[in-house]
């Protein structure tokens, strides 16, 4: 208490001086313009006339918007569960192998460091109709997949996303696993729990908090898969990999700022709500 009183105006000012340059920058470059966009989402792009929710209605009826939303939703619903399960399995597996596990983890993590643009040629050769991946597929199943111009291009995105994020997510799970106190395991062993039981009743419930953060971070990273899509297929890709960013870029070229504003506001709301819902979901799970 006494110390608090001694912190006069001068002292407080020094504390704020640490934060203010960054805080001001965040306000100027992000928060204030976001509010501006919120405002302009209720106005016409030219002239700024007040139109209520008309921009929102236009965007929601737009077929390209619906396609992009459907693809993005499908992508996250498929990718994130796969990513979470495989990477948790990897984290558990690596933990069971002290020594070599650490080295293997580095190998899993490496794709994360690779700039998307520097493997674009590799991707093109891998996923070409007569490419390496189909070479393997044909030798196993006798049939290849037309990755580039069918619905399969969606799976190319899934593979790209998993490739880039598997190691990152494994490291996150590993950290969550390391945070579980050894004493809980010992207590469980004393009570006679073994193998799968330990996993089911001790490990998984203790990972709830980690699971939530990983979900949120994976969701955020899932938006970046646009890079692979754009690098491999350019501005107008096969329909099933048409993502939000493609749509934004098209609207941008056509100066449809009213649509972009409304879509941005809706996207931020969805992200915001999703973060909240995911939090609830992970809290309730046993």
């Amino acid at each position: 208490m006494e110390r608090k009183q001694r912190r006069g105006f001068g002292q407080m000012w020094i504390f704020w001086a640490f934060l203010l340059p960054n805080l001001l920058g965040v306000l100027i470059f992000t928060l204030v313009p976001m509010l501006r966009v919120l405002l302009s989402s209720f106005q016409t792009a030219v002239g700024g006339h007040w139109v209520g929710f008309q921009n929102y209605a236009t965007v929601l009826q737009n077929s390209a918007f619906r396609l992009a939303v459907a693809n993005t939703t499908r992508f996250t619903l498929i990718c994130i569960p796969i990513l979470l399960v495989i990477s948790l399995g990897l984290a558990l597996g690596l933990r069971a192998l002290p020594g070599i596990g650490v080295r293997l983890r580095s190998a899993f993590l490496m794709p994360m460091a690779v700039p998307a643009a520097s493997v674009v040629l590799v991707w093109k050769v891998l996923f070409h109709e007569q490419g390496l991946l189909n070479g393997i597929l044909i030798s196993i199943t006798g049939e290849g997949v037309r990755w580039m111009d069918t619905d399969a291009s969606f799976w190319m995105l899934v593979i790209s996303y998993l490739w880039r994020n598997l190691g990152y997510t494994t490291v996150l799970w590993t950290a969550g696993l390391a945070a579980i106190p050894e004493s809980i395991y010992e207590a469980a062993r004393v009570d006679g729990a073994q193998g799968w039981q330990v996993l089911r009743y001790i490990t998984l419930p203790s990972l709830k908090g980690t699971g939530y953060t990983i979900d949120v971070l994976s969701l955020l990273n899932s938006f970046k898969v646009f890079r692979e899509a754009w690098l491999v297929e350019g501005d107008y890709p096969q329909q099933s990999m048409y993502l939000m960013q493609h749509l934004y870029n098209n609207w941008f070229r056509e100066l449809d700022f009213d649509k972009i504003a409304a879509a941005s506001v809706m996207t931020s709301l969805v992200v915001f709500v999703l973060i909240g819902l995911l939090g609830k979901a992970w809290d309730k799970k046993e």
Binding site: L19, L23, V26, I28, F29, T30, L31, V32, P33, M34, R36, V37, V216, L219, L220, F223, K224, M244, Q245, Y248, F252, F257, I260, A261, A263, S264, T267, S268, V271, F272, I275
Partner: peptide, 24 residues
């Protein structure tokens, strides 16, 4: 509160930030 605000902003994808940042 500032920190919570930072976390929310950090989780916003570029699709949300693109047009606001373009304006600035």
């Amino acid at each position: 509160k500032i920190l919570s605000g930072y976390i929310v902003l950090m989780l916003m994808p570029f699709q949300v930030l693109m047009y606001p940042q373009y304006l600035v």
